[in-house]
Amino acid sequence: MSLETRNPVGSAKRVGAVAAPASAPGWYQRRRTREAMLIACFLLPSLAIFLLYRILPLAWNAVLSFEFWSPLKAARFAGLDNYAEMFFEDDVFWQALTNTLIFIMASPVAILLALAVALAVNSDLKGAAIYRTIIFLSYPLMSVAVGIVWRWLYDERGGFINFVLRGTGLITDPIPFLQSFGWALPSVILADIWQVIGFYMIILLTGLQSIPQHLYEAARIDGAPASARFLRITLPMLRPSLFLCAVIGILNSFTAFDLVYVMTGGGPAHATELLVTHIYNMGFGETRFDYAAALTVVQFALLVILTFLANRAVGGNAGSVESA
């Protein structure tokens, strides 16, 4: 292909000047159109599903948030009433928002833990493959089951954690983890970290294993000590994986519905209420779909902003595998 045809704009200008075959741009345009149509055909099914199941509900949700509406009543324009209630009257919203942000801020802790585990099982440690599998096993478990197990572990009287803490003399009185305002949220977060850490680990492990061994060898010869090899090679090379984990952590904080629902139901007194459980309660508990829609819009906006920021922090390539 000549240089002219590679650039349709340029070729159109230069047709006369260089006496390029007059048919070239036309042929090229037709081919471009055909290609575009073919691409569209391939994309259409998934686009249609995306539109039907993601975009339309979202749009409808946005509309709904500016209305008074219940399944049985005609919609009435509400202006910003739902939002005004949320921001100025709904203490639970603020509590849920705070809790959600705390949940998000816990994810770096989980990612660091997962990194430590990934580094350990990535070594020549004997049986590393087995540990890897065991650690990952928590992830595919149903959150409901995880929640129930942790409820028992946290129990004030018969729970294993209190049993161990008292047995080792760390505490004298049992801690009512899920029944106390101070402990409930950290307890739920810990269970969540436990569940998601295996997934983080797999992502980080994949990242670690895609770092060429020669880089470490080169660094050893170059005289970089182990700490520098970690900071100057491992961490930068893991950046896409780490930020993928961060994005997943943000998403997870917005969707940790099952765990909270099972472990505390958002209580005591909204101490573990997340935006997502509040939305559920408003929508399906109190049949206030309109208000729940407004909450959803706020959660969605927050999610988009945070994900955008996280992705920008990594230069727009979260999850990609960088190679030399």
Binding site: L52, Y53, P57, W60, M142, V144
Partner: peptide
């Protein structure tokens, strides 16, 4: 997990069916 998916489905269903 299951409930989360169900909820999504329900939400999608509410939206989708209301247009039919």
């Amino acid at each position: 997990m299951q409930r989360r998916r169900d909820l999504l489905k329900i939400a999608a269903g509410v939206a989708a069916t209301s247009f039919l």
